Computed example of a mutant assay.
Amino acid sequence: MGTQGEPSPQSEQATRVRWLGRLAVVAIALWFIFDGLRGVWSGAAWSPRS
């Protein structure tokens, strides 16, 4: 924190970097989840009844 209780620019930058890291982890996790679901669903033969 700065001298008057305001966050310093370095801590603000560290917070931004942490959030970017978290977003990157979430994006990678979602990619793996959707990739796995696509692999499971690609073998399913679904056809509507006529």
Rank of each mutant, 00 (worst) to 15 (best):
Val17Lys: 15
Pro48Lys: 09
Asp35His: 03
Val40Asp: 10
Val17Ile: 14
Arg18Phe: 08
Glu12Asn: 13
Arg38His: 02
Ala44Ser: 08
Ser47His: 13
Leu23Tyr: 09
Val17Trp: 08
Glu6Gln: 15
Trp46Asn: 04
Gly39Pro: 01
Ala14Asp: 12
Ala24Asp: 02
Pro48Val: 01
Gln4Asn: 12
Phe32Val: 11
Phe34Thr: 01
Ser50Met: 11
Phe34Cys: 00
Asp35Gly: 09
Pro7Leu: 15
Val40Ser: 01
Val25Ser: 10
Trp31Val: 05
Trp41Glu: 04
Glu6Gly: 03
Leu30Trp: 04
Val26His: 06
Leu20Met: 15
Ser11Gly: 03
Val40Leu: 07
Pro7Gly: 02
Val40Ile: 07
Val25Gln: 12
Arg16Phe: 05
Arg22Pro: 00
Glu12Leu: 15
Gln13Tyr: 13
Leu30Gly: 00
Ile33His: 00
Ile33Ala: 04
Ser50His: 13
Ala14Phe: 02
Pro7Arg: 06
Ser50Ile: 08
Ser8Phe: 08
Pro48Ser: 01
Trp46Lys: 07
Ser50Trp: 06
Arg18Val: 09
Thr3Phe: 10
Pro9Lys: 00
Thr15Tyr: 13
Gly21Ile: 03
Val25Ala: 14
Ser8Leu: 15
Gly2Cys: 01
Arg18Asn: 12
Ile33Trp: 02
Gln13Arg: 15
Gly39Ala: 02
Ser50Val: 11
Pro48Phe: 05
Ala27Met: 12
Asp35Trp: 06
Pro9Gln: 04
Ala44Met: 13
Ala29Cys: 11
Gly21Ala: 06
Pro48Tyr: 12
Val25Tyr: 12
Leu20Thr: 11
Gly5Asp: 01
Met1Val: 11
Trp41Asn: 09
Ala29Gly: 13
Phe32Ala: 06
Arg16Gly: 05
Arg22Gln: 04
Pro7Glu: 15
Thr15Asp: 15
Pro7Lys: 08
Asp35Phe: 04
Met1Ala: 14
Arg18Thr: 09
Gln4Ile: 02
Trp19Gln: 15
Gly43Leu: 01
Glu12His: 03
Gly5Lys: 04
Val40Pro: 05
Trp31Pro: 00
Glu12Lys: 04
Phe32His: 07
Ser42Val: 07
Trp46Tyr: 14
Val25Trp: 12
Gln13Ala: 14
Gly36Tyr: 02
Gly43Ser: 10
Trp19Glu: 15
Ser11Asn: 06
Ala44Glu: 15
Gln13Asp: 05
Gln10Phe: 03
Leu37Thr: 07
Ser47Arg: 09
Ser50Phe: 07
Gln10Gly: 03
Glu6Tyr: 06
Ile28Asp: 03
Ala14Trp: 00
Trp46Glu: 01
Trp41Arg: 06
Gln13Gly: 03
Val40Thr: 06
Trp46Pro: 00
Ser47Trp: 14
Leu30Ala: 07
Trp46Gln: 03
